[in-house]
Write a protein that binds this DNA or RNA. Structure first.
Length: 825
RNA sequence: GCCCGCUUAGCUCAGCUGGUAGAGCACCAUCCUUGUAAGUUGGGGGUCGUUGGUUCGAAUCCGACAGCGGGCUCCA
């Protein structure tokens, strides 16, 4: 044991000790309040990156802090282990996905251990293991039995490079979220979860999530996209079928001069069949459909339409209006058809001008006459004109009246529309949870009985370079018997979206070894909801909304008591280098392993926590990490230099302290106060560290004071407090120094220190003197002076007398302990 | 286009309910050291994005505007 700070030796020693003693295995102590601290589990890509170091460092400080505060803390770790990269590795390097994943996990587990994170490893879960995915299948069956999982043919997003379909959420601007390939539309029979049944609850439930960032909530609200309006059913001349449209502006219905349907609209085929321009129409359809979604929905794509030669009838005024097919109408939103009101919608206005369609004004700005040619669409509300019996009504009232009228006539009514679609969960991939369904020629779709779970993923399969799922060609997997009739049947070869695996893992942690159920209700209820969830904002919609959905379903079915999975959410910022996110392609990646080898885990943790508030982006800085390293060295030297003097001294401080000791205690105790507040108030870890730095500076200020025996316990107290508040941030070095102080117990098992409020108060305070709001002077007064005494002292100042001489004193404002403002005229 | 966030020292960021503008890094100096590296002590540096308002008093509250970043978007 040398006197230099040897982090290699220290970190290795305590990591070994923690591994043996398992201080973080949760005892489920019923007498202590519980706290569930969770960070999003990683995909086992092979190596940790700085983003991981950041999120897990934040979580670890919170977990350690809460433990010291006396909570029984659940702080688990696991692996989101299914997914495409493993399969790609199989194709490319001829290594089985399971082995690839396992090797990555064991490497990353070691990396996490090297960082000194305090996980309860006995609860580790891995979503690709049968004892986990069995319960993911169980969950699928639960949804199936409750009508929340269904199969249908639908136009779906197909990523040609990943050779699988994607959920809407996984398509970003027409590109695959994973690989940026252009996503195509195909018609396929696929499995869906009925998340749209929960649209309203998912939206309204956001209000209850007080501990979530507004940003994440508004992103989810946007995604759900609730839109209240009116459905209006137009009759189609010559057909039985009606053509429903959705509008948020029923007050403009008298201004409808045409109707546009999407090229995908189910009625299109019938509408154009036998029309004289059928060929031209088909050509148009072909052209539009050939364009991929990205092109079609781009802002600058020209709006195109074509007359079908058919007419619809406006149910309000019985007017015949032409039906067009338009490239800008989206088949999957609303009814796939819109009414065209050129006078009151910017897009419709441009469209009508282009195709010479009539423009009829039906809403006028209040107090203004209608008439004359419109230069642009009037999109605001106003008073109705040219609208039959509704003329003269203000927009708001007209919307209500017109909707009621339609309802009474059976031609429409109130309608709520959502942007949210059902969750497409089928993936044409091997490395995922098999969907527990068989297809029987006589019985149809048959769920695999619970007692036959898990449907095992076969291991002996052949990976094809095309990316086609090996399950398709795995005879012993595909061929099975029907659980109902015993006849021959085929297994579903699609696997589940990995977002299902991760939408319930936090529940499995509460009861990870349960062989009878995914989790026991009592165990889940004891811990849920997660008190603090931490992860990247990139999951704001996908993972966080799916988890909310699954939790709501489980709660409705009585399997858990809370319908909220995560009470508080901390969306941590990215780690940047040179203003850009670290990425291999940009070549600006800093490797955590290299940093740990060079500076140690404590330094890496301290820097990454100090460099920015947890929820902001963090700019990596080599100087910054040097600074963090120097700071730890500074703490080390300070404690080591005092060690012999204070080794056998009690931290109990007596009365009768000298002024220097009082100053030291004031700095130390107010720092402890600030650290405590900063961590508990809103995890302001960077400012907490800054307060600890000030504390150390204060202790260095004192260091050269000749030490008198009776002051040694002031020093001992200061050193102990320093180590205690620093412990959650730099667990190794504080553990080492704590033991060197003579303690046998872990520092991480100590209670969080109390500060002495009295000690934080200064003996004297400086009062700022303002004249008309401008700082003109300062006065030092005893801390406990009352307002009158302060005033007297202020007015006794020569400068104050100068400034007030010959002037009228209008009033004097005294802010106790801070300032005095004299208003003069 | 709509919504949200940010703008404070050279850099990265604090600044809680309005009341003396602050930390770390960088920089400069000082001392220690044979020298290097490390260390010690001290210091300089800010019209708080612009502008109007509320107030005795505004970085802080309110309104505009600008710049940067993010989310949603032919959404009917």
């Amino acid at each position: 044991m040398g006197d230099r700070y040897n982090f290699h030796e220290i970190e290795e020693r305590w990591q070994k000790y923690w591994e043996e003693v398992k201080p973080h295995a949760e005892a489920e102590d019923a007498h202590r309040p519980r706290y569930y601290c969770l960070e999003m589990f990683p995909y086992p890509s092979g190596r940790l990156h700085m983003g991981h170091v950041r999120v897990y460092s934040i979580g670890d400080v919170i977990a350690r802090f809460k433990r010291m505060q006396g909570f029984s803390v659940l702080h688990p770790m696991g692996w989101d282990a299914f997914g495409l990269p493993a399969e790609n590795a199989a194709i490319k390097h001829n290594i089985h996905p399971h082995r690839w994943t396992q090797e990555n996990i064991s490497h990353m587990r070691q990396e996490l251990a090297r960082l000194g994170f305090s996980y309860d490893w006995d609860r580790e879960v891995s979503t690709c293991e049968p004892d986990y995915y069995k319960w993911t299948q169980w969950l699928f069956l639960l949804l199936y039995k409750n009508g929340l999982a269904y199969r249908k043919a639908a136009p779906v997003n197909w990523c040609p490079s990943c050779a699988t379909v994607l959920a809407n959420e996984q398509v970003v601007a027409g590109l695959c979220e994973r690989c940026d390939s252009v996503v195509e539309k195909t018609n396929l029979e696929q499995w869906f979860f009925r998340i749209t049944d929960y649209a309203d609850r998912l939206l309204n439930g956001l209000d209850q999530l007080e501990g979530w960032p507004e940003k994440v909530k508004s992103m989810q609200a946007n995604w759900i996209g609730r839109s209240e309006g009116t459905e209006i059913r137009f009759a189609v001349e010559g057909f039985e079928e009606e053509l429903p449209v959705f509008t948020t502006r029923p007050d403009t219905v008298f201004g409808v001069t045409y109707v546009v349907v999407a090229p995908e609209h189910p009625l299109v085929d019938k509408l154009i069949a036998g029309q004289e321009n059928e060929e031209e129409l088909r050509a148009f359809l072909k052209e539009v459909m050939a364009q991929d979604e990205l092109m079609r929905t781009a802002e600058d794509t020209e709006k195109k339409g074509i007359m079908t030669g058919r007419y619809a009838v406006n149910p309000l005024n019985n007017e015949r209006v032409p039906i067009l097919i338009g490239n800008y109408v989206v088949g999957s939103y609303g009814t796939g058809a819109v009414m065209g009101v050129p006078a009151h919608d910017t897009r419709d206005f441009a469209f009508a001008k282009k195709y010479g369609l009539p423009i009829r004004e039906v809403v006028a700005p209040e107090g203004k006459e209608a008439g004359g040619e419109l230069a642009e669409a009037y999109v605001d509300e106003g008073v109705l004109v040219n609208s039959g019996q509704f003329t003269g009504l203000p927009s708001r009232e007209a919307m209500e009246k017109i909707t009621e009228h339609l309802e009474a006539a059976g031609q429409g009514g109130h309608k709520v529309n959502y942007r949210l679609r059902d969750w497409l969960i089928s993936r044409q991939r091997y490395w995922g949870t098999p969907i527990p369904i068989v297809y029987c020629d006589s019985c149809g779709i048959v769920p695999v009985p619970e007692e036959e779970l898990p449907v095992m993923l076969p291991t002996d399969v052949e990976f094809r370079p095309t990316g086609e799922s090996p399950l398709l060609h795995c005879e012993e997997f595909v061929n099975t018997t029907c659980p109902q009739c015993g006849g021959s049947a085929r297994r579903e070869t699609d696997t589940m979206d990995t977002f299902i695996d991760s939408s319930w893992y936090f529940l499995r942690y509460t009861d990870p070894h349960n062989n009878e159920l995914p989790f026991a209700k009592e165990k889940a209820d004891a811990w849920m909801p997660v008190d603090q969830y931490i992860g990247g904002v990139e999951h704001a919609i996908l993972h966080l909304m799916y988890s909310r959905f699954i939790q709501m379903v489980l709660s409705d079915l009585g399997l858990v008591s809370s319908e909220i999975p995560f009470k508080n959410l901390l969306a941590q910022g990215m780690v940047l280098q040179g203003g850009a996110k670290m990425s291999k392609s940009k070549g600006n990646v800093v490797d955590p392993d290299a940093i740990i080898s060079q500076y140690g885990a404590d330094t890496a943790r301290l820097f990454i926590l100090f460099a920015a508030p947890p929820d902001k982006d963090l700019e990596w800085s080599d100087e910054g990490i040097e600074g963090a390293y120097r700071f730890i060295n500074r703490v080390w030297r300070l404690v080591i230099e005092y060690l012999d003097l204070i080794k056998d001294v009690s931290p109990k401080v007596g009365d009768n302290l000298g002024p220097k000791e009082r100053t030291l205690r004031r700095i130390v105790h107010s720092s402890v106060k600030k650290v405590t507040n900063d961590i508990s108030r809103r995890f302001s870890l960077n400012t907490a560290i800054s307060a600890i730095m000030e504390m150390v500076n204060g202790m260095y200020q004192y260091k050269d004071t000749p030490i008198d025996e009776q002051n040694l316990n002031v020093v001992r107290e200061a050193v102990e407090l320093l180590l205690l508040v620093l412990a959650p941030f730099t667990p190794h070095v504080t553990e080492e120094l704590w033991h060197r102080l003579g303690y046998r117990e872990s520092i991480h098992a100590q209670p969080w220190p109390e500060y002495d409020e009295e000690a934080t108060k200064a003996d004297e305070i400086t009062i700022v003197v303002q004249i008309n709001g401008k700082v003109r002077d300062r006065v030092v007064v005893p801390a406990e002076s009352d307002s009158e005494t302060v005033k007297e002292a202020v007015f006794a100042q020569p400068r104050v007398q100068e400034y007030t001489a010959g002037k009228e004193i209008v009033k004097t404002i005294v802010v106790p302990g801070k300032l005095v403002n004299i208003v003069v005229k």
